[in-house]
């Protein structure tokens, strides 16, 4: 009975490892989609309303959730605390603090956006934002494929590893 319970616990632990790995992949997809949507929204707001960026960041922090909300909140807080540093600096800092799980390619897209925001006319900014959103859409699609493919692999591997461990211990 004790062996059976131990075996079940090992299997559950292994499955949890696999599921959490899959969840990390899915979270990346969700964050990329949320970031893409927020950049599209920023681009539209800049084109039609030309609102100041602190106001837009505040609205984004209010309307988004999860890491994207924290990212915009951090960027806004950084700008308020150190206006001399400017948006580029607070944007980069927020990215390091709140979106550390993003890969190099995705970070580069955001860094480019940070270099442009608030420094040029609304049209030029909207153009860079639209390009970044398109790039993120491509990355998100790839990440989705990866999450689906690797998700199945991780689940199967975790179950197989759990089963192997149980057999070895028995």
């Amino acid at each position: 009975m004790l062996k059976l319970l131990g075996g079940l616990l090992i299997m559950a632990g292994a499955l949890w490892c696999g599921v959490s790995a899959v969840e990390r992949l899915r979270r990346r997809v969700r964050v990329l989609e949320d970031l893409r949507a927020s950049l599209v929204w920023l681009s539209e707001e800049l084109t039609f309303r030309r609102s100041p960026l602190p106001k837009l960041l505040e609205q984004l922090a209010r309307e988004r959730s999860g890491p994207v909300e924290l990212f915009y909140r951090e960027a806004l807080a950084g700008l308020s605390q150190d206006p001399e540093g400017g948006l580029q600096q607070s944007w980069r800092r927020a990215m390091v603090l709140q979106l550390d799980f993003l890969r190099e390619e995705e970070r580069q897209v955001l860094v480019e956006v940070g270099k442009t925001l608030g420094r040029y006319d609304a049209g030029a900014q909207a153009q860079v934002l639209a390009q970044a959103a398109r790039r993120l859409e491509t990355i998100r699609a790839q990440a989705g494929e990866e999450a689906r493919g690797l998700g199945r692999v991780y689940t199967a591997l975790s179950l197989a590893a759990g089963a192997a461990l149980v057999l070895m211990l028995l």
Binding site: R50, P52, E84, G118, D121
Partner: peptide, 16 residues
């Protein structure tokens, strides 16, 4: 440059 950036609240498009 910093003064202008702060005056525009990091939003040059609003004051162009």
């Amino acid at each position: 440059e910093t003064v202008l950036e702060m005056a525009s609240r990091s939003s040059v498009h609003t004051v162009l």
